[in-house]
């Protein structure tokens, strides 16, 4: 039971908003020492963990080109392009992106999207642009919301698309674990097929929430969803 103290450190640390690096570092050291590792082995665990998990940090290599393009107006151009599609609201655009992300992930094309590759340079500016065309500049809070939902469309789309693909890590983990531990012959295809109903649910649930975002944003901006900029009665309450 004593090893669970590390879990407690993490929960308390995140809940009290300490620096996450410090929380995780302390939790790792505490759990390792309580779990019977020597200080030297704890150091080695940190080193090996860093070395074997470098793949999650490599998106940094895309930043120089993204930064260069942003200096030359990539985000502005993304906004300009979205303005040409009159019917595309923020919610509709993000729902479209969610569906595309699911479909491409289901074909095994996971790296087609991502926070650094697509969300920051393209998806978030387009989602913001779609709103601003109708309602004028976003308030700080509304901008946070649009960006958060842009990120969520990417993540939900990835999670509930990739498992429909046969050769993705999680499917291979299931077959590997079950076939060796329990002497079974589970095929990746059977598992991938059972992921499809949840993929449909994810599109319906998150898509519906993305579409509702349009109404929330319009209400908070104090203008009706029709697109005209007139201020509705009671807008003072809605925007406070």
């Amino acid at each position: 039971m004593i090893v669970l103290i590390g879990v407690l450190v993490v929960i308390v640390g995140f809940a009290t908003k300490r620096n996450p690096l410090l929380v995780v570092g302390v939790a790792g050291i505490a759990t390792g020492l309580l779990g019977g590792l020597s200080p030297r082995e704890v150091l080695a665990a940190f080193g090996e963990g860093f070395a074997s998990s470098r793949a999650v940090t490599i998106f940094a290599i895309t930043l120089p080109v993204i930064g260069l393009l942003e200096r030359h107006g990539l985000q502005e151009q993304a906004r300009n392009v979205i303005h040409r599609f009159a019917g595309l609201t923020t919610g509709r655009f993000l729902t479209l992106y969610l569906g595309l992300r699911q479909l491409t992930a289901a074909l095994g094309l996971n790296s087609l999207g991502g926070p650094a590759q697509t969300v920051r340079p393209l998806v978030a500016p387009m989602a913001e642009g779609a709103f601003e065309k109708r309602h004028g500049p976003l308030s700080g809070r509304a901008r946070e919301k649009v960006r958060s939902f842009s990120s969520s469309a990417d993540t939900v789309g990835l999670f509930f698309g990739e498992d429909c693909f046969l050769a993705v890590g999680s499917i291979l983990l299931i077959t590997g674990f079950v076939n060796t531990t329990y002497d079974q012959h589970l095929e990746p295809l059977q598992l991938a097929l059972w992921a499809i109903p949840m993929a449909v649910c994810a599109f319906l649930v998150h898509g519906a929430r993305l579409l509702r975002l349009d109404r929330t944003l319009a209400r908070e901006a104090g203008t009706g969803p029709g697109g005209s900029a007139q201020v509705l009665t009671g807008a003072e309450e809605a925007t406070k």
Partner: peptide, 20 residues
């Protein structure tokens, strides 16, 4: 924030090794 994912992967492996 850039270092956090790698540090968390490390924590996961320490959790695993310690029997959490």
């Amino acid at each position: 924030a850039l270092l956090l994912p790698q540090l968390l992967a490390t924590l996961g492996s320490i959790f695993q090794a310690s029997g959490v």
